[in-house]
């Protein structure tokens, strides 16, 4: 009887501690709006990078910026992460435009036929 009660109390305690533990960790990740924003910008940048790659126009600089942004996010430097990710996203869009605008071969004027 006594041991049973003790056990259930213990169990309750354990679930409580574990529960709060989980929610706390989740809070830190999910509820810091700056971290959320940085992650969002990184995802956006990677999408733009892939879009540029889809027209064979990816720049080498874009992936590097995204990696740096991810490292900054990991370190908790959310402002830097967001700034770098935004730069990368912009590059991805420009690179896509560069590729897409040359979908048709346009021969340059310096080569005479």
């Amino acid at each position: 009887m006594r041991t049973k009660r003790l056990l259930s109390v213990l169990l309750l305690a354990v679930t409580f501690v574990a529960g709060t533990g989980v929610t706390l960790a989740a809070d830190a990740k999910a509820e810091n709006p700056k971290a959320v924003k940085a992650q969002m910008e990184i995802d956006k940048a990677d999408k733009a990078r892939k879009k540029a790659a889809s027209v064979e126009s990816e720049w080498t600089t874009t992936g590097k910026l995204i990696k740096k942004a991810q490292a900054a996010l990991k370190k908790g430097d959310y402002d830097t992460a967001t700034r770098l990710a935004k730069q990368a996203g912009e590059q991805g869009e420009i690179a896509y435009e560069q590729g897409a605008s040359q979908k048709e071969l346009r021969m340059p004027s310096y080569l005479k036929y």
Partner: peptide, 18 residues
């Protein structure tokens, strides 16, 4: 060969032809 690429915006032809 004639497509401009990269952040620096060159085609192969920019350098080796033009």
């Amino acid at each position: 060969y004639f497509t401009r690429r990269g952040q620096l915006n060159f085609s192969c032809a920019t350098c080796h032809v033009q």
